[in-house]
Design a protein around this nucleic acid. Structure first.
Length: 451
RNA sequence: GCCGGGAUAGGGUAGUGGUCAUCCUGCGGGACUGUGGAUCCCUCGAGCCGGGUUCGAAUCCCGGUCCCGGCCCCA
């Protein structure tokens, strides 16, 4: 017996149908927002992903050398492939581009609740829009996509602009460590680190504790006060040795981010954009919590970042993450503002309720002597509703029994008598009643039951 | 990579170091070859894999695989 590889799943008919029904509801929302589906290869050059996320991700990527010696990776996510496609073949399309995808991804991770090695992501990328409007649209759409399948997510929105301004005052070597500690919610370790480098006055600790209404006003005060705060760079060496590894890994990306921050306008301006974005979200009727603790670790995020949580998933309670990013230039395109989200489809399937299953097909039962005619009749009827016929050489009695076993509501019975009279028997398997009808009448009768 | 709990027919289960490994359900067939569900009968179908201990292992031990949950990580 061959087992499934670890972390993969089979989807029997009922589950496959559930997944399709849920997927279609969510896709329908995105189509109504004017997003178009795109698809990319299941495997890509490994470099596409290391370029975006660093060499560290190789550990969790299914990668291999193909027969030509190329380093190939099964896609672990779709933002990079979609941006690659944008840069290589869509960069001259009218802006903005509204794209969505639904596809399987692969990560070599330890499976647990809501986490598999092959999993499905649903996501969108809004490429080339203006900051506040794009962000509000994408977040509002994410909210609606979830609501379409009965999930009320808990939306937390953070903003990286101010944090990056604060971090500019900190020796570069520590920036990545600080972001990581924030993301992991390790407050004590964070406070310790900030003190050890003399950065406790920047307001980072207070900023990340700001939540909800009023958070923005206080953030603006912190931002205004920031210009007067200076810290000595001489403290740079007094760090925890335990941080060294993380600092080393983050250096390349850190450098990239600081270059980006360098050409950004003042943080106060960007906060006003963030404020505007929140106002737009109000207009969309979306409830969200401002939460400066959401930093999403990754360096390519530039402004607004958000995460959506739901209950009932154990340790993996995040079902959606996204934000604004700058990746096009990394793949050789010109700098293009983009916003997107990725949504964990398998986790959504854990949370959504039951889905109506399709009606079983109509069974065309026949006596063995009229099999040829039965096949012709079935072929005709399939234009109107699903029909199955026996392929096991069963007796009429056994065909009825089989129809009953699969829950068929209707059975059409055909034998010599029916063919001669031109009237087939339509039997209702629920009530047990039956009547004689022509094929046309049967088509008419059952047509409405299968819409 | 780490910690804990698991694995007996397709599904759900019982049990013991020693007859033919339980029971329920299911699949297929029949009683009933022109009418299903009920009932009865028959058939099919199992101890994750590999080692070890033993006269003998599904049971005890070790390793692996996979499942469930947690940690790490989470683009």
């Amino acid at each position: 017996m061959i087992q499934r590889p670890r972390g993969t799943r089979d989807f029997p008919p009922e589950e496959a149908h559930r997944r399709r029904a849920v997927r279609e509801k969510m896709i329908d929302v995105m189509e109504r927002w004017g997003y178009r589906e795109v698809a990319t290869p299941t495997f890509e050059h490994l470099e596409l992903f290391t370029l975006k996320s660093g060499e560290g991700v190789i550990e969790e990527i299914y990668s291999f050398k193909d027969k030509g010696g190329r380093d190939i990776a099964l896609r672990p996510e779709l933002t990079a492939p979609v941006m690659r496609m944008y840069v290589s073949e869509l960069h001259s399309s009218p802006k903005p581009l509204r794209l969505y995808y639904f596809a399987n991804c692969f990560r070599y991770e330890r499976p647990q609740k809501g986490r598999f090695r092959e999993f499905w992501q649903l996501g969108c990328e809004l490429i080339g829009g203006k900051r506040s409007d794009s962000e509000a649209e994408v977040i509002a759409m994410a909210d609606e996509v979830l609501r379409a399948v009965g999930i009320k997510g808990d939306i937390h929105i953070g903003y990286l602009g101010l944090m990056r301004s604060m971090l500019k005052k900190v020796p570069e070597a520590h920036r990545q460590s600080i972001m990581r500690l924030i993301d992991k919610k390790e407050r004590d370790a964070l406070r310790e680190l900030l003190q050890s480098i003399g950065a406790e006055d920047l307001g980072i600790m207070e900023l990340i504790s700001l939540k909800g209404r009023g958070a923005l006003d206080r953030a603006e005060e912190l931002s205004a006060a920031l210009s007067s705060v200076e810290i000595s760079t001489e403290c740079a060496e007094s760090v925890h040795s335990s941080m060294e590894t993380a600092c080393g890994e983050g250096r390349r990306e850190g450098a990239r981010a600081s270059a980006r921050s360098g050409r950004s306008p003042e943080s106060e301006v960007k906060l006003s954009e963030f404020r505007e974005m929140l106002e737009l979200l109000d207009a969309y009727g979306v409830e969200a919590t401002v939460d400066f603790e959401i930093v999403r670790g990754l360096e390519y995020y530039t402004g607004t970042v958000f995460e959506i949580y739901t209950s009932g998933l154990g340790a993996q309670n995040q079902i959606c993450g996204g934000g604004s990013y700058e990746l096009a230039s990394l793949f050789g395109g010109s700098e293009t503002f983009s916003t997107g989200f990725g949504l964990g489809f398998d986790r959504i399937m854990e949370v959504v309720g039951e889905v109506d299953q399709p009606k079983p097909p109509v069974v065309l039962a026949f006596t063995p002597d009229v099999k040829i005619d039965a096949i012709r009749i079935a072929k005709r009827l399939r234009n109107v509703f699903p029909v199955i016929i026996d392929v096991m050489g069963r007796s009429l009695s056994a065909q009825l029994k089989s129809a009953s076993a699969i829950g068929a509501e209707h059975v059409i019975i055909v034998g010599r008598r029916e063919l001669d009279s031109g009237k087939l028997v339509l039997r209702n398997m629920v009530s047990g009643s039956q009547e004689e009808m022509s094929i046309e009448e049967i088509e008419e009768r059952l047509r409405s039951a299968f819409v």
